[in-house]
Design a protein around this nucleic acid. Sequence first.
DNA 1: AAAATTATGTGTACTTAGTAAACACTTTCC
DNA 2: GGAAAGTGTTTACTAAGTACACATAATTTT
Lengths: 190, 190
Amino acid sequence: MADHKESLKERIVEIAWKICVAESWQKVNMRRVAQKAGVSNTAFYRHFKNKNDLKAVLMLRGFQLIYKGSKNVNVGNNFIAYGANYVRFGIEYPHIYDLMFGHTTDIDMSLYPDLEVASNESFSGLVEGVKSFMPNNSENEVMRKAYNVWASVHGLVGILRRSEWQENKTETLEWIENNLEEYLKITTFG
Amino acid sequence: MADHKESLKERIVEIAWKICVAESWQKVNMRRVAQKAGVSNTAFYRHFKNKNDLKAVLMLRGFQLIYKGSKNVNVGNNFIAYGANYVRFGIEYPHIYDLMFGHTTDIDMSLYPDLEVASNESFSGLVEGVKSFMPNNSENEVMRKAYNVWASVHGLVGILRRSEWQENKTETLEWIENNLEEYLKITTFG
DNA sequence: AAAATTATGTGTACTTAGTAAACACTTTCC
DNA sequence: GGAAAGTGTTTACTAAGTACACATAATTTT
């Protein structure tokens, strides 16, 4: 067993995160992680109930990253900047993004309260932002718009991840910095 | 080996489709399928290179279903009705929908030309519909709008699949029939 | 501090699932 | 009518998740 500062649990998360960022969740297998951590195949089970537990930790970390990104931009009620962060995250961490927002997630949120909270907070932040943009509209109209913004952002991430854009990621990122907010404004508030 | 009219290949597809519709792709495993078909575990490999081949067939079938749905409504260039079909499909066949549009698809489209064609046709149908709606705009603007519509529709499917709506699916379907086109009009062309 | 409990890691082994390889029979085609 | 191709079986390998029994170290309890 290698000698490290952090707990094995922390190391495992770190290793899994790296694999997931660089490759994908499918490439994270416990034997591989264990080997990288320098422990036995099953040491893992002392810290996680099962593999999905680990997935949940990575997802939570993803939400925290998006959230931190939003804070950095000092987003306040500006849901446009909020959406922009979302998109940046989707481009920068595509595999974590998939983990979090792919339809094929077999994670039962109710089993992971922190995760559920983070996910809900994330959405209600958006709703608040939208509401402050259209303060005279009904709750229903605000919700509809919020969902629409959300869908827009998801759609955009999907588009920007297509190979045409990924071939030179640097330019894509530049495009985002220069045009993203304008784009979101147009597609969401005409 | 049971005695049937269709080829084993057709039967396998049928069985897999049913499992996938009722449960999910993750629940389709070749041993189970083989057992239901009344053949040995590996007979499957005489008809498919691997499991992904079968997945591709199911996806293609999904595209055909959406397409057929569009024909029935006599959709023409009306991309609103087109989007509505998309949503209906997403609600009626959620697991097939995931298979087709979930981010976590490990299908390499270029390996399945029919599938690529179907998928592209599906999108260019939408683009055409949008174009006829805004004939004086640039190619770029049309594409941007098309992607936005697409994203909207995806977003809506996601929303309608949340538990609040799924609890009484019948009402959801009714809602779709009554309000969907209006909703799409508002969210996409303000 | 001795005893009991809990935490952390190991080794072994079971299970599920995808699939390769060798064999056999049957149909097709020159 | 024999070669080739098609279809199915058996057997077995591999990867990956995880349960279980054991060991030892750390912590808590009395």
